[in-house]
Simulated assay, not measured.
Amino acid sequence: MNPAAGPELRDIHLPATPDWWPPAPGWWLLALALLVALAFGVRACWRFERRRRWRARVRAELERIADAHARSADAQQLSIALSNLLRRASRLLAPHAAALHGEAWLDFLDAKLPKSEADAAPFRRGAGRALLDAPYRRSDDPAAAVDAGALIALVRRWLAHVLRAEDAHA
């Protein structure tokens, strides 16, 4: 008979395998950081798309105005429509632009042109001057004559430069 060498010992007891849920605090932080990054990404995409649609609407409105003028050749309506378009576009770029009028309005428009073109002041001294007085003159007044092609081209250049500059800031 063999006496027992000692107390009965049990085999090694391993701990239970860790569950996958709930995750460790580091995983929670990573998930939170990913959600925040996703929210910022979605917001940036939404703002970019909104700006892109706005720029497309502005360009389409200019083309609609040019087409309407080609059909009717009314200089007074052209200057009114272009002035309204420029005011709406500039108000979104610089909120104080809505309050400008007269020479200050033309100076603002000239200042937004590229430096090489702004020195010539095409709004103050050129075709853009029609935006000030043409809307208020009678259609049969010879002083109300507007160089429609030059005015539309000037507005087109202004919008192209401003919208391109707005793209760079976005």
Rank of each mutant, 00 (worst) to 15 (best):
W27R: 10
Q76P: 08
L131Q: 00
R88K: 08
D67H: 04
L34Q: 07
P122W: 01
A121Q: 13
W54F: 06
D140E: 15
A44C: 13
W158Q: 06
R53H: 03
P114D: 14
P22L: 01
D141L: 07
R57C: 15
F40S: 10
A97R: 04
R57E: 15
P23D: 05
W28E: 15
A4E: 09
A130R: 01
R57I: 08
W54T: 07
L131E: 05
A70K: 00
R59N: 12
W105S: 12
G149S: 15
A120P: 09
A150V: 03
P142F: 00
W158A: 06
D19A: 14
R50T: 10
L35A: 15
R59K: 11
A73K: 03
L132D: 07
W158I: 02
I80F: 00
L85W: 00
L131R: 00
G149Q: 10
R59L: 08
F48M: 04
L35Y: 01
A145T: 08
R10L: 14
L34R: 02
D110M: 13
L86I: 10
W27C: 09
F123E: 11
D133W: 01
H101W: 03
A145Y: 01
P18L: 09
N2M: 09
I65H: 07
V155A: 08
N84T: 12
A97M: 05
M1G: 15
S83Q: 12
H96R: 09
D141Y: 04
V146Y: 04
S90D: 13
H161E: 09
A31R: 05
P18G: 14
V36R: 00
H13S: 15
F108Q: 12
E8N: 11
R52S: 15
R125W: 02
L154F: 02
